[in-house]
């Protein structure tokens, strides 16, 4: 029997040398060390031996068992290291594949730009004041120093409603009248507001022009508001919106509700003023119409123009968004194609 034990021992050691994975190791364990395995089998049949041989055999059998257990522990380390290495290798994925799509929401690009404008102007003390889309002719034009049939009305192609004297506002400027009358305390309180809103023009819809668009008007009225303040204020805005190096220039222009009136250009932030497609090779991008509030408009808002003064400006959020992101077709904005919206 001892002979037999030694044979099993030798055989077991040989067998374990070729064990490559934990499953084979478990099988090996069952074969040699399990309750029904060879070594236990030998130990159980110890009673068949003559008494004097039993002690030696038992000792040897325990030695064999311990040695095999040790061999198994040793082998287990090797096997699990090999298995880990194999798992890591087999577990490799193509990390260049796209991520699993996760449904995401998002804001409309105009909202993004409006929010940025609200934030910047809010920091500068200009608060949001909103007024109606459907206006009367008087507030949209007459009170803004644009009398009926005046050629200045040619500057705005207007949607008229079937109610005489009621139109869709052509600009956010009627908000100036509402703001002055509501917040100005009959010409006794200073005002600093921005007036965002949707405007409408009777204009053929093309890649460059829309019948509906946002405007954001600004208005400051006080006892000591100067045109140089308008310059300083817009410069400050431009630095915050376009970057700390932004430069602006004023060009003389005409709006019936401001005088002096100017167009405001910012040095092209895409080409640094060298000339590119977006700035039409001029180096400048128009960002606002502006000026000192016309004395007639101040009067219509309840202020005495000899004691009070103000400035106003108007910006186009869609136009600003287009310049920033090189969007070449303004029709994208209200078309709501998800392929467009999802880029924001």
């Amino acid at each position: 029997m001892l002979q037999e034990l030694e044979t099993i021992y030798k055989e077991a050691l040989e067998a374990i040398a070729s064990v490559r994975d934990s499953e084979a190791l478990r099988a090996w364990e069952r074969t040699y060390l399990g309750e029904k395995g060879s070594v236990y089998g030998m130990l159980r049949s110890i009673g068949k031996l003559p008494k004097e041989e039993r002690a030696d055999f038992g000792k040897r059998a325990n030695e064999v068992k311990e040695a095999l257990l040790a061999a198994m522990t040793e082998r287990e380390k090797l096997v699990s290291a090999a298995e880990l290495a194999r798992d890591l290798e087999e577990g490799q994925i193509d990390v260049t594949l796209p991520g699993r799509p996760h449904p995401t929401g998002g804001l409309h690009p105009s909202t993004h730009t409006l929010r940025e404008l609200y934030r910047i102007w809010g920091d500068m003390g200009f608060q949001v004041y909103r007024s109606r889309d459907v206006e009367d002719d008087e507030t949209n034009f007459t009170l803004l120093n644009i009398p009926e049939h005046h050629p200045a009305r040619d500057m705005w192609d207007t949607f008229h409603t079937t109610t005489p004297g009621v139109i869709l506002r052509t600009h956010t400027s009627p908000g100036q009248i509402h703001a002055m009358r509501e917040l100005g305390d009959e010409g006794n309180e200073p005002i600093r507001v921005i007036l965002p809103g949707m405007c409408y023009r009777y204009e053929q819809v093309t890649a460059r022009s829309e019948m509906q668009f946002h405007q954001l008007e600004g208005l400051a009225v006080g006892r000591n508001i100067r045109m140089s303040d308008l310059r300083g204020t817009i410069t400050e805005f431009a630095r915050r919106f376009y970057g700390p190096k932004a430069k602006i220039r004023f060009r003389s222009s005409y709006f019936p509700f401001t005088e002096p009136s100017v167009e405001v250009d910012v040095e092209c932030f895409l080409c640094g003023g060298e000339g590119c497609r977006v700035c039409k090779y001029s180096g400048w991008i128009e960002i606002a119409g502006a000026g000192m509030v016309h004395p007639t408009v101040l009067q219509n808002g309840g202020y005495d123009p000899t004691q009070w003064s103000g400035f106003a400006f108007g910006m186009g959020p869609e136009r600003m968004t287009m310049n920033k992101h090189d969007i070449r077709d303004i029709r994208y904005f209200w078309n709501n194609d998800l392929r467009f919206l999802e880029q924001f």
């Binding site: 003390g125 200073p190 000591n224 508001i225 100067r226 140089s228 303040d229 310059r231 300083g232 204020t233």
Partner: peptide, 12 residues
């Protein structure tokens, strides 16, 4: 030739 100035007026 116009300078930039900061509004000196009272903040509403």
């Amino acid at each position: 030739r116009m300078y930039d100035t900061i509004i000196a007026d009272e903040m509403p």
